[in-house]
Simulated assay, not measured.
Amino acid sequence: MTSPLATPPSSTLEGLDGLVREPFSRRSFVMTSLITGFTLATTTVLAQAIKTDATGLVAGDVQIPTSDGNMPGYRAMPEGNGPFPLVIVIEEIFGVHEYIKDTCRRLAKLGYCAVAPELYARQGDLTKMTDVQQIVSQVISKKPDAELVSDLDASVAWAVKDSKADGNRLAVTGFCRGGRATWLYAAHNPKIKAAVAWYGPLGGNRSDIQPKTAADVAGALQAPVLGLYGAADTGIPVADVEKQRDTARAAGKTVEIVIYPDTPHAFHADYRPSYRKEAAEDGWKRMLAWFKQYGV
């Protein structure tokens, strides 16, 4: 079994100049451990939140080596020898809290090694933040995209080396901001076999450290992408979602988009009022089928 490339050859980055740019500034890790329970940034945690036990699993917090220190994360995988197909799970803006951990356990119950890195551990301590605008302005907007994809590369490399994961059966999925990261990572890492973006923002502001939107990389995808979106998502217009699909397909890329009628943003987040059971369950089935279709 060969390990995924830590840094794809330059030829794979065609059309992505500005997204992967070295060197980026190194910082110490502010967060050294994950959130316990659910994020403090939501005032209501609903009883409908799904709870998946760890029976038959190896599951818990981990430390993922990066070029400038250890990044906290969460891993869940079946007991046994493996190797297991690998799914990188990319968090919402709220950190790797119980919802993201449970998502990893759900995947592990199905035979996957699921790893969720805390990508914002350098930018701020999400274990203490309660204000969404503070999280966006002080943490999310401060994360360089070059650092983000480097951290995802490190997570893949660690999982292959230390977690019985098969780097040749690699998928990525992400929620909200993690959906945006899913699009970017699918344009970065040629080892990805399948990607699923749950309501990931496609547009937004560009900056020196975040120079590309998800829409900007639609024609540079290196993996088949399934996008799951809500028609009632006030922050992501349906027209933008359809344009993303059309742009990718015009460039010869494999993209499928599902738009759920009368469905808001964050419809998979079962701990929040935005949860829509039917759409969430349908999206989950489609995600698993997408993984299987493309060899993960």
Rank of each mutant, 00 (worst) to 15 (best):
G295H: 01
D240N: 06
K164Y: 14
G18A: 02
R245W: 00
M1G: 15
R180I: 01
A6V: 06
P264Y: 11
S33G: 15
L16M: 08
V172K: 10
K193D: 13
Q210P: 04
R105V: 00
T130E: 14
K51L: 06
F84C: 02
Y120N: 01
E98C: 02
T234G: 00
V96H: 02
T173Y: 15
T127Y: 07
G82V: 09
R169P: 09
G227P: 07
T247I: 11
N81W: 10
A231E: 07
T42P: 01
P273L: 10
E118K: 08
T173D: 11
A41S: 09
I90N: 07
K191H: 07
L5Y: 08
S207P: 04
T32W: 09
A47M: 10
E278T: 05
Q222F: 03
E281S: 07
Q222K: 09
W158H: 15
V258F: 11
A186D: 06
W284Y: 11
V160Y: 04
R206G: 01
I236K: 05
D125S: 03
S155W: 10
V139F: 03
K51T: 13
V20G: 00
G82D: 08
N81P: 01
I88Q: 12
D270V: 10
I93M: 03
A181T: 11
H265G: 02
A187Y: 04
I88D: 12
T263C: 12
P273D: 12
Y271P: 04
L40H: 02
L184F: 11
S28Y: 04
G295S: 06
P224F: 12
L126K: 09
D125P: 01
T130G: 11
A114N: 13
I88S: 07
T39R: 08
R106L: 04
D153S: 11
Y99N: 02
H97Y: 09
A231V: 06
R276V: 15
K193A: 08
P9K: 13
E118Q: 14
G73M: 12
V255W: 03
F29C: 07
I90Q: 10
E92A: 02
P83K: 10
T130W: 03
R169I: 04
T127K: 15
T36L: 09
M1T: 14
P144Q: 02
A266E: 08
K51C: 04
T127N: 13
L107I: 11
P9T: 08
S33L: 09
G56D: 12
N205A: 12
R272H: 13
S3W: 12
V225R: 02
I259T: 15
A181C: 09
V156W: 09
A181Q: 04
T254W: 01
Q222I: 00
M71Q: 13
R249P: 00
A220L: 03
L148M: 11
N70F: 15
R27F: 14
V217D: 02
A41P: 05
T43P: 06
L170N: 05
A41M: 02
K212S: 02
D17E: 14
R106W: 10
K164F: 08
D151T: 09
G179T: 10
A6H: 14
A220G: 01
L34T: 13
W183M: 11
K193R: 15
G15P: 02
I209T: 08
I90R: 06
Y120S: 00
L13P: 01
D17G: 04
I88V: 14
A289G: 15
D145E: 12
S11Q: 04
Q138H: 03
L107R: 07
T127S: 12
G252C: 08
K277F: 10
